[in-house]
Structure formats: C-alpha cells, structure tokens
Design a protein around this nucleic acid. Structure first.
Length: 593
RNA sequence: GCCACCUUAGCUCAGUUGGCUAGAGCACCGCUUUCGUAAAGCGGGGGUCCGGGGUUCGAAUCCCCGAGGUGGCUCCA
C-alpha cells in the first residue's frame, strides 16, 4: 500500500504547498505550519480563525485546482535568517522553524510556486504540470499539536491522498471501500462476535458465545505450541499492591494509566496492567538452581489499562484485554536459545494465517535517557545480544526502531502485513535486565554463587483482542474451519418430523467428532435459510430432506471465498463429516471438499 | 485528554425552514404455507428521538453541560 517512489512523494509534497496556498487565500488570517508528504498522500497544518469541517473540503479542493492551473516551476532561493524573519513576520510557526534551523546552522531556503512562497527544504516536482488535477483528493480534517507536543497549541490538519495518475487514486479509494467492508467493528456486530455496552463502559469489549469460541481456539493454538517448548501454565490474581509496580519501575512511568483501588483499610492496589511483576514473584518463591533454568511461565489473562478515551477504538485499543503472555527467566547464556524458540512460535503462528512478517529491532533512544531504566552499558550489551539474534535470523532484513524499546529493555517487534497490504504490530520478544534487578531475581550457579537472571517477555498475539481486530479484517470475517464459531449449518427442507429428527442426528454425529454444528429447522424457505448461513459466513451448509434421508448422501454448500465451487458433489454423511473434522484438526486455511 | 464531526426501534437508515398520535426495510413474535441451495405471504409487538438542563406558545430539529461513537493528534509497559 505504501507507495514511496520518489516522484510521487514530490507530487504529494507539492500538493501540501498547493493546499496551503488555497487555504491562505480562502481564510484571511490563516497561518500555515508544516506540510509533508506521507504514505498515500500529504497533510498541511494550519492555525485558522475558524474551524474547517469536512463539508468545506470540496471548496478548498476546487480552489486548489484553480490555483494549480496558474502554477509553473518551483523555484528555489537560498536566504538568510533576516530575510526569513521579514518574509514570515506574520507567521509565528514559520518564524520558529526558521530560527531553529538558523541556530542549527542549516541553510534556509524559500520555494516559490505561482505567488506562494514557503520556507521549505525542498522535495517538490520540477513543474506543477506534473501534478494531475484528478489524482488527488482532500479526505479529512483533524486536530494536531504544533510540533507534536500535547502542551502546545492545537492546529487544524487537513489530509489529502494523492497519486501520479487518476487510476491509482481510484484503486486507492476502492481499497478504502474494501477496508470499510472488512472493518472488524462492523463484522463483529454482523457475525455476532462481540459487543460494547454503555453501562459497562467504553473500551470494555464483551464477547458473545461465537466470539468466545474464536478466542479459545486462538489461545489454545498459541499456548499449545508453548507447551511443546517447555512452558508451564501459571495463574495470578488481577489486582496487586502498588509496591509491585514500584519495584518493577512501572509505577514511575505508568501510574496515571493504572486503574487504582483503595481498600477499606486504606491500602492502595491496582488492577494489573501487565503480568511480569506477578510472574517474578512465582520465580522468586524459592531458591532456583542453575539446573532448573530456564523457568518458562505462560498465562493468558486479562490486563487493565486506563487508556485515554480518545485512543479507544474497537478491539484495536481497549481498556481490558487478554494477553497471551509468557515470561522466561533464564541465564544470560540461555537468552539466544530461548529467543529463537519464541521466534519459532511466532513464525508458526503467523505462517498459519498467511501473514507476511517484517521485523523491527526496537532500541532505546540515547538522546532521551530519562525515559529508560538501567545504565548505558547494560543497554549496549543487551541490544548487541538481541541484534545478533535478529541478524542470525533475518540477516539485514529488519528495520531499526530507535526509541521504540520498552523502558526496561530492547525488543524485537513483528509487524504483520494483512490481505490489504496494511501493516500491524503484533508479536514481540523483549529482553529485560531491569526487572530482575528490581525484584532481585537470581539463580545459584555452578560455583554456588547468586547469579542475576534475565527475563524475556513474549506475547505472540500481543493481545487476543488486537490480534482479532487484525485477523477479522485480514480474512474479512471468513474464518477457516478450525476457527469458525459455527462450522456446519444443517438446514431442514421442511418441518416434517422425520426430517428434523435426521438433522438433529446429523448434528449429534458432528458434535461427537468435535465439530460445531447447528440445525436450522425454522419455518422459512430453504433459500432464506441458505442466505442466512451465507451472511454468517459459515463454511459448510447442508440441506436435509427426504432425498438425503433415503440416499444417505449430502450435497454440501461451501462458502464462496474458499476458492472452491459453490456446491460440491454429493458424498456420504460419513465422508463429509470426516473431511470437515480433518480440516478442523489440521488448521488448514482452505476447504478440501 | 485535545480538535472536528456524529448519536432517531435489536440492526441499517428516512424524518422539509422548530408545528398533528415519530416512519421504513431487516431482525423479533404469531398465523398461513411445508418449500430443494442467497430473501414465501399476512398480521403484530417494539422508541425517554443518547442523558440532563435551557430558549420557545411549541424542540428529534436551536443553545449549554455530560455520556458514547468516528477520524486524527498525543500516548501505548
């Protein structure tokens, strides 16, 4: 999706200038701030005397097209700070940028197109005629803080999308439409997977029976793999004294985001926002020999974070979520082997769903040491250790995420590319040398000495909610048989007693094979019941009438996406059930009938 | 939390510039029908027009406060 070829980026950046020119003409007193090219388009920030709404975008767009006709080449001019001060005396944002750049010793440049002059470092098209007036569109307005700083003035940001050709714009808009059709919030409602209640609260999803089946299946898959690698399940309470978070270091950084509880005796507790402190105390509950290392704990459990209301969104960002969490307590010498095992699980898990993974090596930001615990030496050594694992695994096919580390250590983050080409951060492997110190975690080594251990945090799905939000959209709600909340819909042709009885018996046989089958014996036409099963995206539908009872053969209808014909050849009941049961067991993505 | 926009039945949405007992389709319930692979017919129930306050002879409609949602910003252990 991200189209980053250089020419289109110059088009986008030039359009930001054009947008600024249009808005400055239309809104006297308007001041433009920054306006870069971004994936898919561009934006421009403004300080405006009045609020722009979505309805105004068409007018602004029309003005942009008018101005575009009058523009020719973009001309560059090197200027000194005094000239910049003079030119932008009306615009405090440009002035601030100019002063900062001058202080850094950078060469200031003006770019002029038509009669619009902007302080800018460049990256425009040579000539404005390279911009197709039919290949861009303004899409939305939003608020944005000056210089991305919450404490500073909020500006109005206008976003646009832009491409080299109108055809590319059209394809992009179609992709956006497709994304709307697949929106997990919409599908969650339509497929009866989860819901929200104003009484329960924002950001607190409630999973229906169907949605809960999905959660269970996914979780069993992840945790089953962990068991293969020697993990042991643990269980902990969902509240803790605040002391645990003071020791872990979380209190300092995240105390505002905790749901706090004061007991009747005045003690301060918090709903757990993560599980590491609890798990450390299981590790610390007895003296550990080096022979017992590593200790690998796994647990799928709810966490609670008091996120800002404006950040909540469907299942992507919630206040209560289930982490498929695991912590490995190991010796420094065991880190590599353990991390590679986790990486295996990540590969197996995402490979099953057809996600392509990209790796990000997330390190601390040396420019802002205040955001991290631990010494510079410790960061250097853990980052080196993690980097060697990354290189061993993917060579140089990873991206650097400077400043993306957790406060307690560096991470390997995995980004999954979905069916529409969008990337989402999913799994993570985190190396933590700080909490073992905070909780004084040790094992006794070969020399009888206490040895500091290392913690590895690893979530495969991240959270079940977030993974579901990505996955529902990835498959557009068409779950493979092993995940489908309802795998087989058994429709009765009519309501004759023998037909309904046969359908119920078939459902019974399916259940004995571990399948999820539901009988629809409503007093509705067959067509209506078929339609209903299709809308619920149920993988297999069979119709039962006298013909099936006499022949013992079924003619299954198969959900369309499975790249198989709509209606399969007839086969015996036993054959059909065996095939479906095998698919469910083997976690294949496609039907095999 | 901040900016903009939005909220009418379980769902999707109509509802003229403020003016009758607030509507439709689907869903749900009942009756008729007993049907062959994407919607059978008829009837019925269901609303504190998100909540509270205000303006007005009169508010779903205008104003204020709050809740929830959407798109961004900020944040994300």
């Amino acid at each position: 999706m991200a189209d980053n070829n250089e020419h289109v980026m110059t088009i986008r950046h030039s359009l930001a200038h054009l947008l600024a020119a249009a808005v400055l003409q239309m809104y006297p007193g308007a001041k433009n701030a920054i306006g870069p090219a971004i994936d898919d388009g561009f934006y421009q920030d403004f300080d405006l005397p009045e609020a722009v709404s979505d309805d105004d975008l068409a007018k602004i767009e029309a003005r942009m097209r008018d101005i575009l006709k009058t523009w020719g080449a973009f001309t560059r001019k090197e200027v000194g700070i005094d000239e910049a001060r003079q030119q932008f005396s009306w615009n405090p944002y440009k002035l601030e940028l100019a002063e900062d750049l001058a202080r850094e010793g950078a060469q200031l440049t003006f770019y002029t197109s038509g009669d619009f002059v902007d302080l800018c470092r460049g990256g425009h098209v040579q000539d404005a005629h390279e911009i197709s007036p039919k290949a861009f569109r303004l899409t939305r307005v939003s608020g944005a803080y000056w210089r991305g700083d919450q404490s500073k003035q909020q500006l109005q940001r206008i976003y646009g999308v832009a491409f080299e050709t109108p055809e590319e714009l059209k394809a992009y808009l179609q992709m956006v439409e497709e994304a709307k059709r697949r929106d997990h919030r919409k599908l969650g409602q339509e497929l009866d997977l989860f819901t929200f209640s104003d009484l329960v609260g924002a950001g607190l999803p409630l999973f229906t029976p169907r949605g809960t089946i999905l959660r269970r299946q996914l979780d069993a898959f992840v945790q089953g793999m962990r068991d293969e690698y020697g993990y042991q399940e643990v269980a902990v309470p969902h509240i803790t004294k605040k002391d645990a978070y003071i020791a872990s270091g979380h209190w300092k950084k995240f105390q505002d985001e905790l749901f706090r509880i004061t007991t009747r005796e005045g003690h301060e507790f918090a709903m757990k926002p993560m599980n590491c402190p609890h798990h450390t105390q299981i590790f610390a509950s007895r003296v550990r020999s080096y022979k017992d290392m590593p200790q690998r704990y796994r647990e799928t459990t709810m966490c609670y974070r008091d996120e800002q209301s404006g950040e909540l969104s469907g299942l992507s960002r919630v206040r209560a979520f289930a982490q498929d969490d695991a912590h490995v307590f190991c010796r420094t010498s065991q880190v590599e082997e353990e991390a590679l095992k986790i990486w295996d699980i990540v590969d197996r898990f995402y490979g099953t769903f057809g996600f392509e993974l990209r790796v990000r090596f997330s390190t601390h930001d040396p420019a802002h040491p205040e955001g991290y615990s631990g010494s510079a030496e410790q960061w250097a050594s853990t980052e080196a250790q993690l980097l060697s694992i990354v290189k061993q695994k993917v060579g140089d096919k990873y991206t650097d995420g400077v400043g993306e580390a957790a406060f307690y250590g560096p991470k390997i983050d995995f980004m999954a590319k979905d069916a529409l080409g969008r990337e989402h951060q999913v799994a993570t492997i985190q190396l933590d040398f700080n909490q073992p110190e905070g909780f004084d975690l040790t094992c006794i080594n070969e020399n009888g000495e206490k040895e500091r251990v290392v913690m590895i945090h690893a979530a495969i799905m991240g959270s079940i909610e977030r993974f579901l939000s990505v996955y529902i959209e990835h498959v557009a709600g068409r779950f493979p048989v092993w995940l489908a909340p309802e795998q087989v819909r058994i429709i009765t042709l009519n309501q004759q007693e023998n037909v309904v009885r046969y359908a119920d018996e078939l459902a019974g046989k399916a259940k004995l094979l571990g399948l999820r089958a539901i009988v629809d014996s409503d007093n509705e036409s067959v067509g209506k019941k078929i339609r209903s099963a299709e809308l619920m995206k149920i993988p297999y539908t069979v119709v039962i009438g006298d013909k099936e009872i006499e022949s013992g053969q079924l003619q299954p209808r198969i959900r369309k996406d499975m790249e198989v014909g709509e209606t399969a050849e007839p086969r015996t009941v036993e054959e059909f059930l065996k095939t479906v049961a095998n698919e469910a067991k083997s976690r294949v993505n496609k039907t095999s009938l």
